[in-house]
């Protein structure tokens, strides 16, 4: 049984690396884009709020697979042809995950007392300044655990890319399953362990950060 892993070490490793790469790149991009969305959702201008809300509701409530199909089958009809494979996956995962990042951040923003914002405006800070210097630093502290949840979900969601020309862990598992008949359970078990290797430490990390940045209000 252990032979299956030893013999296919390089394949497993390549799949694991691809899953990590998808998670890291899409994760960073989602955090950036999600932050911008969150800022738009609390912006003083109504059209910006409407735009961001519409985006978040649309993407948050659409299955990720459909986002992928949209990018691969529908977007080209409108002349948008992203490079197939890795970058298509990054775009789709980012579009999807940023909606969840935005909502996590917004809940953090809502948890900051309204007096904080009023005080910031009263001392003459602009909207951008009060958001960036006063509200966000406090908001982020409270939403570290849900944000890590979003990233863990992202790590698992990368498996959807297996059906769209990205050979990450799940696609690697399918390949090995085809090459080594009768070992499907062992192979998939190995895949599951590699996911846990990332997601469990991420959860522990979340707990530590949470303790570190905790503050009494």
């Amino acid at each position: 049984m252990i032979d299956v892993f030893l013999d296919n070490g390089p394949a497993y490793l390549a799949g694991f690396r691809m899953t990590l790469a998808l998670t890291a790149v899409a994760g960073v991009a989602s955090l950036v884009f999600g932050t911008i969305l969150a800022a738009l959702r609390v912006a003083p201008l109504r059209p910006l709020r409407v735009l961001a809300t519409g985006y978040v509701e649309l993407l948050r409530n659409t299955p990720l697979t459909l986002v992928f199909f949209g990018m691969v089958l529908v977007a080209p009809q409108f002349g948008i042809i992203p490079p197939i494979g890795f970058w298509t996956a990054i775009i789709c995962l980012t579009l999807y995950t940023s909606a969840f990042v935005c909502e996590a951040l917004r809940s953090g923003i809502n948890s900051v007392g309204v007096g904080q914002a009023e005080a910031a405006r009263a001392i003459g800070l602009t909207f951008g300044q009060s958001l960036a210097l006063v509200i966000f630093p406090q908001a982020v502290r409270t939403v570290i655990p849900p944000l890590i949840n979003v990233i863990i979900a992202l790590a698992k969601n990368t498996s959807v890319a297996a059906g769209f020309a990205v050979v990450e862990l799940v696609a690697t598992g399918r390949r090995l399953g085809q090459a080594i008949p009768g070992e499907a359970v062992t192979i998939l078990g190995g895949i599951a362990i590699l996911y846990l290797l990332f997601t469990i430490p991420a959860g522990l990390f979340a707990t530590r950060i949470e303790q570190k940045v905790a503050f009494a209000r």
């Binding site: 020309a165 399918r174 390949r175 085809q178």
Partner: peptide, 10 residues
């Protein structure tokens, strides 16, 4: 292009 985990891919 082919199907993931299929004999032709192999």
């Amino acid at each position: 292009c082919t199907a993931s985990g299929s004999t032709p891919e192999q």
